[in-house]
Simulated scan of single mutants.
Amino acid sequence: MGDATLASIRIEHHFDAAQEKVWRAWTDPDVVRRWWGSQPDGVVTSAHLEVREGGRFEISFQDPDGDAHTSSGEYLRVEPMVALEFTWGWRSEPGVVSRVTVGFEPREKGTAMRFVHGELRGASKHDYAQGWRRTFAKLDRVLAADAQC
């Protein structure tokens, strides 16, 4: 009997930035290039985003040790400023597809983000919980740097 259990990772994160800036960080390839990937010193080598329902994204990045990674998927729901939902997969793991849902709510000081990476089947080699938290820490730094401009 196979592993039919689908796991989910849920992360609530507060950004000290306006909702518009957080939305742009998820939807503008120029901003995505500055924070995508869980390695603090990793570098995005390409980011293609077609942010519309049925549109696709593909983001490639390289770790400091030279390992290259490409994540891609299809946007299932795009509610400007409010929510994104998309499929998620790695080029290195064909056929292993999961689903990401991200919701954004304005707060008096910043933006609350509700993040769910679901339909995880346990087949991926990636530690998503730790990886996403490190990735959001990078996004915190990018948003803080923009706020001081």
Score class of each variant (00 low, 15 high):
R134I: 00
A4S: 07
E20S: 11
L76Q: 15
V51M: 11
E79T: 10
E85F: 04
R56N: 10
V32C: 08
A47G: 09
W132K: 06
Y75K: 07
R34G: 02
Q19H: 01
G95V: 00
S46M: 10
K21F: 08
G73R: 08
A112I: 03
A4L: 13
W88H: 14
A137D: 14
E85D: 09
E74S: 02
T45H: 05
E85Q: 14
S98Y: 06
D127T: 05
Q62K: 13
P40W: 09
K21G: 05
L6F: 03
R133E: 13
R34F: 05
R141I: 09
G37T: 09
Q39W: 15
I9H: 05
G55A: 14
R121W: 05
R33C: 09
F86V: 01
D41F: 09
H69M: 10
W90Y: 14
H13I: 04
R91M: 03
E20N: 07
A25H: 07
V44H: 11
D127Q: 14
I11K: 01
V44G: 08
V44F: 06
R77Q: 12
K138A: 11
S8F: 04
G103C: 06
V22Q: 06
G103T: 14
V142C: 08
S92R: 06
A112W: 02
P40I: 08
G73E: 05
D67P: 00
G42S: 15
F15H: 04
F115S: 02
K138S: 12
G66A: 09
Y75C: 00
A129N: 13
V78N: 08
A25K: 06
R10F: 03
G55E: 13
Q130H: 07
L139A: 12
A17W: 07
V43S: 10
R133W: 04
V100T: 07
K125G: 15
R114A: 10
H48N: 13
A83F: 04
S124W: 03
G131L: 03
S60Y: 03
G95L: 04
T27M: 05
A68W: 01
P106T: 10
Q130A: 11
A18M: 00
D140G: 12
P106G: 08
S8I: 02
A18K: 07
S98N: 04
D28K: 07
S72R: 15
E93W: 02
H126F: 15
W36K: 08
D16F: 02
H48S: 14
W88L: 01
L143T: 13
V82E: 12
